[in-house]
Nucleic acid binder design. Structure first.
Lengths: 351, 351
DNA sequence: TTGAAAGCGCTAACAC
DNA sequence: GTGTTAGCGCTTTCAA
């Protein structure tokens, strides 16, 4: 004998299954006495409504989904505790998850999460798509074909990722944030010779940040760099390597290294410490994102904080809005960032 | 016209719906040529299998669930950024979530998460229960009636929470961890007069930690404290208050404050700083849990780290095992903790 | 306010 | 290997 169903509850309560259903879906269309009968029958039987059956019949799951990159790369895991720890502190997705969960709950939805390595992003998304009413993709590059199929079936919002035509989209103010940070370096610290270390050529976020960096030079009337001084792949290792290379190649140190993200900046901190270059005295270093690790390194990293939990919350709002009106025009929302002035640029650590 | 279904795909591929189903559920029972026909028909149509229908027919959702307490208490949220930040850094659930997600994915399951305030834990659990094949409850007190109903329907594992008869259970080595920490204080730092600040009377975790504290005294041949010197409710505020009270009440300072968790210890650090008491010179302070915040306070908090991501992983393993054999005996697994010697006990900060 | 009945899209026997 | 055929447990008209 399986688990109790509406039939069992109905029989026990002496009503029809339709009434049982109504008690759960629209309680006020059922007379109070009847409702009580049903509820107590359900309680006695240990009835738990099946979400699958409900979802099939009503064509809605009551669940929102979030796909994000697998944060812990397998290498780090193999190398031991220190690196694993670093990986944990490098992930800003936790906050997005929390923001989404909270907002989803407010709207009566549960949250399904699924991480995936870059090469499996498509499968992951397709799998999640079948289980939810709406879906957010965080910082993942999904094959256009999958994105297309899925987004035709349900609302999809892209968070901090590659632009996708016709889809709702939320991102941080990459340009403005980097502009503010760079102006702080130039104006407040009087730094004129800055080297920008960018991300991969195909990263729109990193590109926007570089443009912010350029704009700060324009604002100050300084010569505008045409290209990043170097590029990395946004990992700690690549930041370290970029600095090593720059140190070896160039005769003269710039006054500051401006990185397209925190992880590379942290790698730079390691490299500079090894080479005996003192931050911020000899050279300042800045990042972007505001990952937990950025606070814990020494010196603490000056960076641009992305409003991660708000990213998650806004994602839910957008999904809910589109669920309500499937044909509303696609929107792109840009969330303001906040400059975190910490020790690595020469500012005192904040309270 | 709704979304494409197995019928549409079957028609387009010139096969039966059973074959379409087989292509997804057991691809190798279908001839390669047929499989290709089906797959390409699916692709052309933009077919996405409905998890609800699948779940209803197969009586399994392919999803595991996690219920945990709502971390951000509404007060903190209202009070502004600093407190909200503190709340974020105080939650150790992120790691559990990550651990569970990873392990679940390894087993082919997705993860559904749902937070809830203490007073809604039951509803939250019941709701999630209908959507998943197995369920973990993290540090939540759920009404026995709900726990009973749900656990009769599907596997439930309790993580770091109140004991529940007959259910699988995973916890950290509260006794052993506190014993090790306390012995470190007594043996390595030569501290004999220690004050333990406990948690609520009904917290089994806090109670076990106090017993570890007691045992360390026994081991050292010191008089064994019968009761905690004070109790708090495990919040930062209560730790602060406990220390203030102790400071006001007692003439003589103990050599060390041993707290039942990190958050109270952090509150103590604040209180002591205000009163001009220097940690660790005048008095040492220790916590328990290893929350992110414990690393970021000054001095960094010596504490006992719980293996949070392993808690999550083990939860999945237990659920999977029980899914495979519903009548295996309930097990209680205790995971080893690790002592984190940091500055607040007088040890140098670790690399 | 309640009941009867027709699906929702898929899986799983069971035949062929 | 593939097709036929019952359901899975619920929601939702439509009547009563």
């Amino acid at each position: 004998m399986g688990d109790p169903t509406v039939y069992d509850v109905a029989e026990r309560a002496g009503v029809s299954i339709a009434t049982v259903s109504r008690v759960y879906r629209s309680p006020d269309t059922v007379r109070a006495a009847t409702r009580e009968k049903v509820l107590s029958a359900a309680r006695e039987l240990g009835y738990v409504p099946s979400a699958s059956a409900r979802g099939l019949a009503s064509r809605a799951t009551g669940v929102l989904g979030l796909c994000f990159p697998d944060f812990a790369d397998p290498e780090a895991e193999a190398e031991g505790a220190a690196d694993a720890d670093e990986a944990e502190m490098s992930f800003y997705g936790d906050e997005v998850i929390r923001g989404m969960e909270r907002a989803a709950r407010r709207h009566g939805y549960a949250l399904l999460i699924s991480a995936a390595h870059a090469d499996r992003a498509g499968e992951s998304m397709a799998d999640v798509a079948g289980r939810v009413d709406g879906l957010a993709i965080l910082a993942q590059q999904v094959p256009a074909a999958v994105l297309d199929v899925v987004s035709r079936r349900l609302p999809v919002v892209v968070l901090a990722g590659h632009t996708a035509p016709g889809l709702d989209r939320i991102e941080a103010a990459n340009f403005d944030g980097q502009l503010e940070l760079t102006r702080h370096l130039i104006d407040d610290h009087g730094l004129g010779r800055l080297a920008f270390v960018g991300g991969p050529e195909d990263s729109p976020d990193a590109a926007a940040r570089f443009r912010g960096f350029q704009a700060a030079h324009l604002a100050a009337g300084l010569p505008m760099p045409e290209q990043p001084a170097a590029r990395g792949d946004l990992t700690v290792a690549s930041g370290r390597k970029a600095v090593m290379d720059l140190l070896d190649r160039e005769g003269e140190l710039p006054q500051g290294f401006v990185f397209a993200n925190d992880q590379m900046a942290v790698g730079a901190l390691y490299a500079l410490a090894e080479r005996g270059v003192v931050v911020p005295d000899d050279v300042v270093v800045t990042g972007f994102d505001g990952i937990p690790l950025s606070r814990m390194v020494s010196p603490a990293l000056t960076t641009v904080r992305q409003p991660m939990s708000r990213l998650g919350e806004e994602a839910v709002e957008l999904l809910i809005a589109r669920l309500a009106d499937r044909r509303r025009p696609a929107t792109a929302r840009i969330l303001p960032t906040a400059l975190a002035r910490r020790a690595s640029c020469g500012c005192a650590a904040q309270a």
